[in-house]
Design a protein around this nucleic acid. Structure first.
Length: 491
RNA sequence: CGGGGCGUGGCGCAGCCCGGUAGCGCGCCUGCUUUGGGAGCAGGAGGUCGCCGGUUCGAAUCCGGCCGCCCCGACCA
């Protein structure tokens, strides 16, 4: 059997080639496919359904924290992007520019938004007169384009979907609080919905968003030991306000620049989900994100039974739906049961319910979670009523278990303690450690040296709840540490 | 942007060195038999061999050019 042929019914094991595994799994689980345009992808219904569930959950959280949705245009005048010096330097290399429209060359080119700070703060400037008009707390769900040279499905594509929040405040303190509130929202969302517990904190200077004063981030650790920046929240200070004339009259009657924040998460989260939970059998979708949580698979021996079993399965689906479980039936009876089982396993569907003649006789069903509990049964025959009644709890149990497993793996792949040289840091990373905590003097040249020597960067200066009980005293580059940082190789 | 690889039915590939009527597996369609972990048999549909040019009686195959995509390294949600 050739290697290729051997792969037809299975994936390259993660241990052999994680990146090949990822590419195969994403395509074969029908999450996404390559489009005819280089670097851009088609998100297929199963993948888009996951994104929709992420959107819904996040959107609710944004609304609960006082935000509203709005929509700003795709095209931004080139001059807007160029207004903030650091911002343009950061984004210029990856801009897609529209130079012609309506059969004529445009007087001023438009850029396809790589992010919308400039257009949004230009609009805010129009809308804000006094402190009474603040804060403005808006979010938009949209696509953006960054002309990437090196692309990967979900993780880095030329066009991607995201949400970008943009706020304006009357004081620095309020803006700072907003940036931190959103960071907490992201963290909670990642833990509770994606079951992907990140480490959160502040970005170092070199990793700061172009145009921000401070960037906060959620960094998640993937199964291959690489970090994924999963969400960012920026305190923009008055940088954009100055460039776009976003001023307001304060309570004391003075004209002041507003304070801004911006924050976003993208379809990259779908890639993070895959790399956090996936196994050699395919994708694993946490129940809360699964477009369909339970698939009922009827198994028949002949045509008479087939009608009866399909009817029975449909009844179970209806009962599950009544209890708020997203259930469906796979009645593709031209496929063998095994083929249907594998199909949903590959896609990561959380729980399968099998029902055949034997089960009907016993008034039972067979319940099969995508990931079995440690030491638990892979398949379990349960009285039908019990299976239906317990399903929601079982899904929640799986949800929780996935998060615990991911957290335990993150901790197992984390090294804490004194790291006294760059060589030692490199050895730790080479030995399979993902996150390495160490002391840092705060000197950017140390960061540059580490990157040169080990390809690792400071992912985050961890927030209080992530810091080591005993803070490191020495900087990896030598000398005294001013703070603790988390190093990793990153996506 | 540098390095490598690949373009042949929907997908994965062989054929190319050595030019001579385009093939295999999977998938798809029809029928029958099947169905508790990737069903079997029989019949069938489907391809201007990435594009342009050249050599030749004849090009998937040789030569030149172009395009596209994927993978690996420097920048990035």
């Amino acid at each position: 059997m050739s290697k290729r042929k051997g792969r037809r019914k299975g994936f390259t094991p993660r241990s052999e080639d994680f990146s090949a595994w990822y590419n195969e799994v994403v395509q074969q689980a029908e999450l996404a496919d390559y489009s005819p345009v280089r670097g851009s992808m088609v998100i297929r219904p199963w993948g888009y359904g996951i994104w929709e569930n992420m959107q819904r959950a996040l959107d609710d959280m944004f609304k609960a924290t006082g935000h509203q949705n709005a929509y700003f245009p795709l095209l931004i005048p080139m001059s807007f992007i160029e207004r903030e010096k650091e911002h343009v330097a950061g984004f210029k290399p990856e801009l897609a520019v529209v130079t012609h429209a309506g059969g004529k060359k445009l007087e001023e080119p438009y850029v396809v938004r790589p992010t919308s700070e400039t257009i949004i703060y230009a609009m805010y400037a129009k809308w804000v007169q006094s402190y009474r008009d603040l804060p403005i707390l808006l979010n938009q769900w949209c696509n953006v384009m960054r002309w990437e040279l090196r692309t990967r499905l979900f993780l880095r594509t030329a066009e991607f979907l995201w949400q970008e929040g943009h706020t304006a405040h009357a004081s620095a303190d309020e803006a700072e609080a907003e940036a931190r509130t959103i960071l907490a929202v992201y963290r909670t969302f990642m833990e509770d919905w994606i079951a992907m517990p990140p480490v959160t904190g502040l970005k170092s200077e070199s990793e700061r968003f172009a145009g921000a004063v401070r960037s906060y981030a959620c960094e998640a650790l993937m199964q291959d030991g690489k970090a994924l920046q999963a969400g960012t929240s920026h305190m923009l200070g008055q940088n954009f306000a100055r460039q776009f004339g976003l001023t307001f009259q304060s309570e004391e009657g003075r004209e002041e620049y507003a304070w801004n924040t911006s924050w976003g998460v993208s379809t990259r989260l779908v890639g993070g989900m895959v790399m956090t939970h996936g196994d050699d059998g395919g994708v694993v979708v946490p129940p809360r994100l699964a477009p369909t949580q339970v698939m009922v698979v009827p198994i028949a021996r002949n045509d008479d039974q087939q009608a009866m079993l399909v009817e029975k399965a449909a009844a179970i689906v209806a009962e599950l739906e009544q209890r708020g479980v997203r259930a469906a039936m796979d009645d593709r009876m031209h496929l063998s049961p095994g083929a249907r089982f594998f199909d949903w396993e590959r896609k990561g569907l959380p729980v399968r319910v099998e029902i055949g003649p034997r089960d009907v006789d016993r008034e039972e069903v067979v319940v099969v979670p995508r990931v079995a509990a440690e030491g638990g049964p892979r398949k379990e025959a349960l009285p039908e009523g019990q299976a239906v009644a317990e399903m929601a709890d079982r899904l929640e149990e799986l949800q929780t278990r996935l998060c615990e497993t991911a957290r335990a793996r993150r901790e197992a792949d984390t090294h804490r303690g004194e790291v006294s040289s760059i060589d030692e840091l490199g050895e730790l990373l080479d030995s399979g450690v993902g996150f390495v905590y160490s002391g840092w003097s705060g000197d950017p040249s140390v960061e540059a040296r580490v990157k040169d020597a080990t390809r690792a960067t400071i992912r985050v200066i961890p927030g209080e709840e992530f810091r080591s009980a005993t803070p490191p005293t020495r900087c990896v580059g030598g000398g005294r540490a001013q703070m603790e940082v988390v190093w990793a190789r990153a996506y």
